[in-house]
């Protein structure tokens, strides 16, 4: 579904991604883990078109999308729930969800999808008329995921959805991610919480200072000594 080859990204003189290649097959949950500043967010931002790479290619369902606009990528089915949630804080919960469907014109179907998001996250329904900025951190994360689903993505990219959440809520978010995947959406998940991410991932990539250093099935990486030492606290 998604195939990145030899991607290089610079911020001025900073070489943030150094020849990154990775693949996501249809139906998978793939996780990208790594320490702070490794380049995970940069990878997702480049996939969604917010950042232009200096070289390398991004294929989506066989089409070269390397130089297309972010809106074209949304239209093709790539959606990102960005790091830090980035919800529109002074707009209501409902307006945030409607913006997620900005490119769609099928009003009736949009309404259905909003109900579907409410069903998945009942708290959002209760808060629908409230300014999104007044939601708690966990609720905001649910809104960010719900909003990203409103474009009916084929590939949903999530950037640290568990950041800043209480353990119980982290478990809930991961359950939801699995559920979204089971309903047919492919997932690329960036996480600091390597333990949880590896548990639900089919495959995983480990990133260090701009390069992929390890990759393999999630369960396999969980047993790897290197990973245990570096990311799983023992």
């Amino acid at each position: 579904m998604l195939e990145i080859s030899n991607l290089n990204v610079h911020f001025g003189v900073i070489h943030a991604l150094k020849g990154v290649s990775l693949k996501v097959e249809e139906g998978e949950i793939v996780t990208l883990i790594g320490a702070n500043g490794a380049g995970k967010t940069t990878t997702l931002r480049t996939i969604s078109g917010l950042k232009k790479p200096t070289s390398g290619t991004i294929l989506f369902n066989g089409n070269d999308i390397t130089s297309t606009l972010p809106q074209d990528r949304v239209r093709m089915g790539i959606s990102l729930a960005p790091e830090g949630r980035r919800i529109f804080s002074s707009l209501t919960v409902l307006e945030n969800l409607e913006l997620g469907a900005y490119l769609r014109r099928d009003k009736a179907e949009i309404k259905k999808d909003i109900d579907m998001v409410y069903e998945r996250f009942p708290i959002l329904k209760a808060r629908r008329k409230q300014a999104a900025g007044t939601l708690s951190g966990g609720e905001q994360q649910m809104l960010a995921i719900g909003r990203a689903l409103m474009s009916r993505p084929k590939l949903l990219c999530l950037d640290e959805p568990s950041m800043g959440l209480a353990p119980l809520l982290v478990q809930e978010i991961f359950d939801i991610i699995q559920d979204i995947n089971q309903k047919g959406t492919t997932i690329l998940l960036v996480e600091q919480n390597a333990n949880m991410a590896l548990q639900i991932a089919n495959r995983a990539y480990v990133m260090e200072t701009g390069t992929i250093t390890l990759s393999g099935p999630g369960a396999e990486l969980m047993r790897s000594e290197e990973i245990k030492k570096a990311y799983l606290g023992g």
Binding site: L69, P70, P82, F88, L91, E95, E98, L99, Y102
Partner: peptide
């Protein structure tokens, strides 16, 4: 209007607006 919503979204967060597919 749609464009009005886009205006508000871009004012609030340009990157996030772009992720919604707003030009």
């Amino acid at each position: 209007t749609r464009i009005g919503k886009a205006m508000r979204a871009v004012s609030l967060d340009r990157d996030a607006a772009e992720l919604m597919g707003i030009n």
